[in-house]
């Protein structure tokens, strides 16, 4: 796997407020990286720095082994960016919305239909973007990010405010891009989304990357309780310690046919974030 993004010691302040402080991470091809943090944590600022839209105060950000401040037009074509607050041209059709960017990127018209098909908007190609539902507008923004078949996708809160069905369809599209070898940089404050999609996550709080790694590894790392919760057939629940004594008790319950279901009590990303910061993350 090739390293697509490498950032080291990135710092950024707006006035006296330090938004990012010494952020370092790497993202490879075929990797979905999730940057997690509450609103205002600096997620979008980091995307802007990596994509060369904003100058960092310190540190280096490299994309395709190139300083992000020196990215040229060809490099930008290899980046697909979908920001949460990007608008669409309401009066124009979906097709014409994409046509603007096709002209900018020098992409053939037939590619527009191919991208619309990919995001499930082919039948709405001639509908005015202003008349689309929120979910369909998100698909249109996603289509815009897919236009150049980019090597890296930056998706800023791609499913924010969407219904579960649409969110799930967008998740499938993101996973399909990963399968095609693309790197995906995802920001979200939905922990379940990160746990489902991401190979690695970084937790951002008050400008610091407080945790970094695979979601399961992080959850295991903070599994202090090490307990097993057992639902019994009589409707009660019992907590068993995750040790030799607990194993004996578990064997006994199973051999007597009393167990209904067995659950581990390892924390999820949400509880890890709370443990680390004392703050809630989910919207």
């Amino acid at each position: 796997m090739n390293e697509m993004i490498s950032i080291t010691g990135i710092s950024k302040s707006f006035g006296s407020k330090r938004v990012l402080d010494g952020i370092s991470l790497q993202i490879s091809s075929s990797e979905i990286f999730g940057l997690l943090g509450p609103s205002g944590a600096g997620k979008t600022t980091l995307i802007k720095i990596i994509t060369g839209q904003l100058m960092q105060d310190g540190g280096t950000a490299c994309v395709f082994d190139k300083d992000s401040r020196k990215l040229n037009g060809n490099d930008h074509r290899r980046l697909g960016i979908m920001m949460d607050n990007f608008g669409v041209y309401d009066r124009l059709s979906c097709y014409n919305n994409l046509k603007i960017f096709a002209r900018i990127y020098g992409i053939r018209d037939d590619m527009i239909y191919s991208v619309l098909r990919k995001v499930g908007l082919e039948s709405s190609a001639k509908s005015a973007a202003g008349k689309l539902s929120k979910g369909m507008k998100s698909r249109l923004r996603l289509a815009r990010a897919f236009m150049t078949d980019p090597d890296i996708l930056f998706l800023d809160e791609p499913t924010s405010g969407l219904d579960p069905v649409t969110a799930d369809e967008i998740h499938k599209m993101i996973l399909a891009e990963k399968e095609r070898g693309k790197a995906v940089f995802l920001t979200t404050h939905t922990m379940s989304e990160a746990q489902k999609l991401c190979d690695n996550v970084g937790m951002l709080c008050d400008g610091h990357l407080i945790e970094y790694g695979a979601p399961d590894d992080i959850c295991r790392k903070y599994d202090h309780q090490r307990m097993i919760r057992v639902h019994l057939k009589d409707g009660t629940e019992t907590i068993i310690p995750h040790n030799r004594n607990g194993a004996d008790k578990m064997c006994e319950l199973i051999s007597r046919g009393l167990t209904e279901s067995i659950h581990t009590t390892e924390p999820d990303l949400c509880s890890v974030f709370m443990e680390l910061t004392g703050k809630e993350i989910s919207a």
């Binding site: 839209q53 960016i81 920001m83 990007f86 608008g87 900018i104």
Partner: peptide
């Protein structure tokens, strides 16, 4: 207002 300008600027316009 509608943030379409940002999308254009980020497309290297």
């Amino acid at each position: 207002e509608k943030n379409t300008l940002r999308a254009l600027m980020m497309s290297n316009v």
